[in-house]
Design a protein around this nucleic acid. Structure first.
Lengths: 232, 232
DNA sequence: CAGTGGTCTAGACCACGAA
DNA sequence: TCGTGGTCTAGACCACTGG
């Protein structure tokens, strides 16, 4: 247990118990220095961590205050599909359904967000768990940014995994919605038409240049996303 | 631009450009100290931030390395519904549909995760935007933890907002799924039966004690969640 | 065993912003 | 104005762990 950690816990406990309500001014740094008998940098590190966690807000000259619980935000884990399938003890396989090279402008409108101008590799495929459909994926990879994708054989290998190992992304944006399975999707996933599916769309950039846009569709009854918020 | 920030950017740029691939050993702290002519604590702060962002991994005696891009994780914003409605310029209203006090054990099975034993306030209601249904919500509030909830008049006020201002939570867990609207839901939201809806479930604790479990259902075509990942 | 990162100290200067 | 937090320095000790 570091000193920093004990300072953090000390404050967290008072906030959690309700002893210090939102808006309450917590002790000044120099008071905590006196209370814990440590250097100011150590107190500062603890308070910085609490600030990052959203538990307190700090204002120069005024002090540090218990934050009013703001808009919920949480850390969402979006595992890649092969890892997810294998974690459940099943055999993963990717089945390529379609592949073509065409101008990015010919792709879905969502591609525009990536800002790509040249050609893109458009592909469709199915993620299988023990040979049963697990998710359907439609993806575009901008060949301006990832020219080597044109030469890759995606039969068997998930394009997401290949990209992940090839092009570390630096920015990503996700959009999560619910959609009814249309006829094509219900056939691909072997589910009844109209079944609610979770749609996860992801835009990926590296150093400001668009890399890929993908839309993955999961049967609503076979998949869910979980997110956890815990301070510090 | 602080020194810490310039060190971070220096390293981020090299990772983003692909110059330093995953697994590459970045300079030792003492080398960066020499390069930037600053104190070791400053370099340490920059590298700690990069570690938190998941861009590098650090091992004692071995050094710091560019992280292999791991399982995707993102920060998901889950705004509370009144704020969301008002942000879109519409008038918010909450319509209470049902309310009863009963043992927590009589509630949905998900309630068990909260670990509550005594009575709970069970309520159902509708979030309205300009008097049009926006989301349906079913909630249980553990009266052991929040006894004052029994006396509140939730007509007009969102119970989520009331709780947020009353009981700052310290831990929360979310589950996001897609479901088809059943008959009751389609009537409540005024949508066609079977329409795909986004279900957001949230468990909330304060200092280890369960506070509330809520399930909110949004028509899939009127709502989506977005999540953003950006390093540092 | 030797060198790394993890933590800490006891100072310092400064910008901001509440009073 | 002047106290606060934000940032930084130049040291120190230590636990861990790779070679």
């Amino acid at each position: 247990m570091t000193i920093e950690e004990s300072i953090r816990r000390h404050i967290e406990a008072r906030i959690a118990s309700g002893e210090w309500r939102p808006g309450h001014r917590i002790p000044f740094e120099h008071e905590l220095v006196a209370e814990f008998g440590c250097a100011r940098a150590t107190v500062g590190k603890a308070l910085a961590a609490l600030t990052r966690a959203g538990l307190i807000e700090r204002r120069r000259k005024a002090g540090s205050f218990v934050a009013r619980p703001h808009v919920q935000s949480a850390v969402l884990a979006i595992p890649d599909i092969p890892a997810m399938v294998e974690a459940s003890g099943k055999a993963y396989r990717f089945e390529l359904r379609a592949l073509r090279i065409a101008p990015a402008a010919d792709g879905p409108p969502e591609l525009a967000l990536l800002g790509g101008k040249g050609n893109a590799l458009h592909l469709e495929g199915l993620h299988l768990a023990d040979d049963a459909p697990f998710a359907f994926e439609r993806r575009a990879i901008l060949l301006d940014t990832v020219p080597e994708a044109a030469a890759v054989d995606f039969v068997g290998e998930s394009p997401g995994s290949w990209l992940l190992h090839q092009i570390p992304w630096t920015d990503a944006q996700h959009r999560i919605t619910a959609v009814n399975a249309d006829r094509a999707l219900s056939r691909a996933l072997d589910i009844s038409p109209g079944l609610a599916c979770l749609s996860v769309e992801r835009w990926t950039w590296r150093a400001g240049r668009g890399v890929t846009f993908v839309r993955q569709l999961f049967p609503g009854d076979r998949y869910d996303l979980t997110a956890v918020f815990t301070p510090s």
